[in-house]
């Protein structure tokens, strides 16, 4: 067991050093942005080698921070280089124009709701993003804001249940899971609409 751990750490550490070296040498900004993901993968690899529940608990926040950082940096890059108003096309192929996006999105969202929690939010958000990408979107920001408010209210309510009537902790746990599911799903589906122009 110890043998396996040390070999794994050595190899993943070599990979991390290569990634950081490439990040230092690289001059182009977008190549650097892509290399950030590589660094993230090798760092998460070192955490994953711990191989216990602790690793699982550490990987989830790492992924959350990673996706938030990536969104912010990409927005800064796009605005800094002045590509903000450039119109991009969606994917225009036969498979997407049929019913495939609808079916796959519904499957992913249902599965995400069953999973609940942050994981379910991620899976369901991916389904929403795929649907928006395939079909275009109109701006329904008030709906998204409402969902965000509902998730906050659910969270606070679950917290009060935890505080005052702790014998119903299971109910409070489910409420909190639904709240975080809504929150993550809304935030991730915003990443599909944040780019300004849809693909009508």
């Amino acid at each position: 067991m110890w043998q396996e751990f040390s070999i794994g750490v050595l190899l993943v550490f070599i990979a991390a050093v290569i990634a950081f070296f490439a990040l230092v040498v690289e001059k182009d900004d977008l190549h650097r942005l892509l290399l950030l993901d590589l660094v993230e993968v090798s760092s998460l690899g070192i955490i994953a080698l711990l191989g216990t529940d602790l690793a699982e608990a550490l990987i989830l926040p790492g992924l959350v921070v990673g996706i938030a950082e990536l969104l912010a940096l990409s927005q800064i890059y796009v605005i800094k280089e002045g590509f903000r108003d450039k119109v991009v096309q969606g994917l225009n192929i036969e498979v997407i124009q049929a019913d495939a996006p609808l079916i796959i999105s519904v499957l992913l969202i249902c599965y995400g709701v069953v999973l609940s929690g942050f994981t379910g939010g991620g899976v369901a958000g991916l389904g929403v993003v795929f649907y928006f990408m395939a079909r275009g979107h109109r701006e329904h920001f008030e709906l998204l804001e409402m969902a965000s408010g509902i998730s906050w209210a659910t969270w606070i309510f679950a917290f009060f249940v935890f505080m005052f009537i702790p014998e119903y902790w299971m109910f409070a746990l489910f409420l909190a899971a639904i709240g975080i599911l809504l929150k993550v799903m809304v935030k991730l589906s915003l990443s599909a609409t944040i780019w300004g122009d849809g693909n009508e």
Partner: peptide, 10 residues
């Protein structure tokens, strides 16, 4: 599961 979803989103 989470890593799969997040890597597709990124």
């Amino acid at each position: 599961l989470t890593f799969g979803g997040v890597s597709a989103l990124s």
